[in-house]
């Protein structure tokens, strides 16, 4: 059971990608489960995904990278025991720190056979300054980018080439080892590459 997280700050398109990715991955007779975590006490995203017919576990009441990490580990173990999917796609809150989500997922590894998939971090191409240049928020988004195995610059259909190049350079400065790709859930750009990365990831 491979656990892949689709992380990134609020509003960057995580839920849209989760929906498309889960459909693509499930297409080849793979068993897919999704775990969605939201702060704000209303799991809107989980409900939206659930209506698409996917198997979804909502975790509310806090953030899985810190407050409710043990609940996340139990949820992963429960999925392993009851459903044993090939892939679990995890959408943490938009303020979660990816390496802490990985640590929480590994807690379930004591009882479940898991492989850690990549931490795919989405970065919203339409608001790089808003996200990186603010004091407290900038620290959080910077940490998310630094923790990424893959950075997917999202909403690329909404900005021009020069903006994209500037954003790519900023991301590269923060994380030189991650693969950086361009993503548009609207046009489908980048979706196939993300799917390949997940399937080929060795952990």
């Amino acid at each position: 059971m491979k656990i892949t997280q689709v992380a990134g700050f609020l509003g960057c398109g995580k839920t849209t990608l989760m929906l498309r990715l889960s459909r693509e991955l499930a297409g080849a007779d793979r068993k897919i489960a999704l775990v969605v975590n939201e702060i704000g006490e209303i799991p809107v995203d989980g409900k939206v995904i659930e209506e698409s017919g996917m198997r979804v576990k909502d975790i509310g009441g806090g953030c899985i990278c810190c407050e409710v990490a043990s609940t996340f580990a139990k949820t992963v173990y429960g999925l392993y025991k009851d459903f044993n999917p090939d892939h679990v796609l995890v959408e943490p809150t938009g303020v979660a720190v990816p390496h802490q989500v990985k640590m929480a997922a590994r807690m379930s590894g004591r009882d479940a056979k898991i492989i850690m998939g990549p931490a795919i971090v989405l970065f919203d191409a339409t608001r790089p300054g808003e996200l990186l240049d603010m004091d407290m928020l900038g620290q959080l988004v910077t940490t998310q980018v630094k923790d990424a195995d893959v950075v997917a610059i999202s909403k690329v259909d909404a900005v021009d080439e020069s903006q994209l190049e500037t954003t790519t350079d900023k991301i590269r400065e923060l994380n030189a080892s991650a693969e950086i790709l361009r993503l548009s859930s609207f046009t489908g750009l980048g979706l196939k590459r993300i799917q390949e990365i997940i399937l080929q990831w060795k952990g």
Binding site: I39, G40, E41, I42, P43, G46, K57, D58, I59, G60, G61, G62, C63, C65, C66, E67, V68, S70, T71, K74, T75, T93, V95, A96, V97, Q100, M136, L137, Q139, L140
Partner: peptide, 24 residues
């Protein structure tokens, strides 16, 4: 939905993030 008990304040509070939800 799983209903975990709240523990310490979440990481997001360190970054000044607040959430609120309502059903109407």
């Amino acid at each position: 939905m799983d209903t975990p008990k709240r523990q310490d304040p979440g990481c997001y509070t360190e970054h000044g993030v607040s959430g609120y939800g309502i059903a109407v």
